[in-house]
Amino acid sequence: YGLTVIMNYALSKGASIVVLPRFDLEQFLAAVQEYGVTFAHLVPPILVALAKHPIVDAYDLTSLEGITSGAAPLGRELAEAVEGRLGCVVSQGYGLTETSPVTHMAPNREKGQTPHASVGPVLPNTEVAIVDISTGQRLGPGESGELWIRGPQVMQGYLGQPEATGATIDEEGWLHTGDIAYIDDRDDCYIVDRVKELIKFKGFQVAPAELEALLLSNPHITDAAVVRSPDHEAGEIPKAFVVSDGSLSEEDVMSFVNERVSPHKKIRRVEFIDQIPKSPAGKILRRILIDREAQGTE
């Protein structure tokens, strides 16, 4: 993504690129101010900081015209909060390493051009299908299922791994992404979460990313992650790991979410922590939290 979408594409258009050795919020803000950066490719955890961290106000970010978010689903409330604070357009795209690496991109020339929670329409010459993960049946608009991709950007396969390739790309050339998504009546696509991340509560499937986006809309919550927690009665229940300003109780967090979601999506356990574990790319390392939770409930 960094090589193809950011570096090579930008250079082909004659753009200047500001490259940082690693992400540091203050260093990033200083670079935007010093170099007059107009466009940034970011991940949702960085947008959380741009929306909520007080140090942002110490820098002049008026040069920023647009931000494209990727790597994980971006909630509508968070995108709108960043737009409101910085005055730039926030959009998102979607793709995988196996798709070289983009399949969807939301138009971003002006605010409101694409729904904030959407990754936009599919790219030209690319086909998509939404498929029921249990039955393999194709689904219609508004129905959530696994996103399949077919197009010229889909990889030939994993080098030297025919079994892994066969498990990912079927005989008709469809790449099974492992992501749950749906498409609306405008043909805009919405990424719900990874299939393997879904929480199975009494036969219902709960997407952690939806609950995380809701948690982050609370002004007293600076970061959050939701994972499955073992439960003898339900099998699995949603548990929230929360970084807050210290003003909330566990009951406050659960009430905030549970008043806004269906019964099966309710947060049923909360734990306050100092920091959400993340990869260098900014993705939540849910596996660390899941393992921690499994050990704690044994």
Results as ranks from 00 to 15, higher is better:
Leu3Lys: 11
Ala15His: 14
Ala15Val: 03
Ser16Gln: 10
Ile17Phe: 10
Leu20Gln: 14
Pro21His: 04
Arg22Trp: 05
Leu25Ala: 04
Leu25Thr: 00
Gln27Lys: 12
Gln33Ala: 09
Pro44Arg: 02
Pro44Tyr: 01
Pro45Ile: 00
Ile46Lys: 06
Leu47Phe: 09
His53Asp: 15
Asp57Gly: 05
Ala58Arg: 10
Tyr59Gln: 02
Leu61Asn: 06
Gly70Pro: 01
Gly70Phe: 14
Gly70Val: 08
Ala79Pro: 02
Ala81Glu: 05
Gly87Gln: 04
Cys88Phe: 03
Val89Asp: 01
Val90Trp: 12
Ser91Leu: 08
Tyr94Ser: 08
Thr99Trp: 04
Thr103Ala: 06
Thr103Trp: 01
Met105Ser: 07
Ala106Lys: 08
Asn108Phe: 14
Asn108Ala: 15
Arg109Gln: 07
Lys111Thr: 00
Thr114Ala: 08
Pro115Gly: 08
Ala117Asn: 03
Ala117Leu: 10
Ser118Glu: 00
Leu123Gly: 09
Asn125Ser: 14
Thr126Leu: 12
Thr126Arg: 13
Gln137Trp: 04
Leu139Arg: 13
Pro141Asp: 03
Leu147Trp: 08
Arg150Gly: 05
Gly151Ser: 03
Tyr158Asn: 09
Gln161Cys: 04
Gln161His: 13
Ala164Gln: 15
Thr165Glu: 12
Ile169Asn: 07
Asp184Gly: 02
Asp187Gln: 09
Cys189Leu: 15
Cys189Met: 15
Val195Ile: 03
Leu198Cys: 07
Ile199Ala: 07
Lys202Cys: 11
Lys202Met: 13
Phe204Gly: 01
Val206Tyr: 12
Ala209Arg: 06
Leu211Ile: 03
Leu211Glu: 02
Ala213Gln: 09
Ser217Cys: 03
Asn218Pro: 05
Asn218Gly: 06
Pro219Val: 03
Pro219Ala: 07
Asp223Trp: 05
Val226Gly: 13
Val227Arg: 15
Glu233Arg: 10
Ala234Trp: 02
Gly235Ser: 02
Gly235Val: 00
Pro238Cys: 11
Phe241Arg: 14
Val242Pro: 15
Ser244Trp: 02
Glu251Leu: 11
Asp252Phe: 08
Met254Pro: 02
Arg260Met: 04
Arg260Gly: 01
Ser262Val: 09
Lys266Tyr: 09
Lys266Pro: 13
Arg268His: 05
Lys278Asn: 01
Gly282Thr: 00
Ile284Ala: 14
Ile284Asn: 11
Leu289Phe: 14
Ile290Glu: 06
Asp291Leu: 13
Gly296Ala: 11
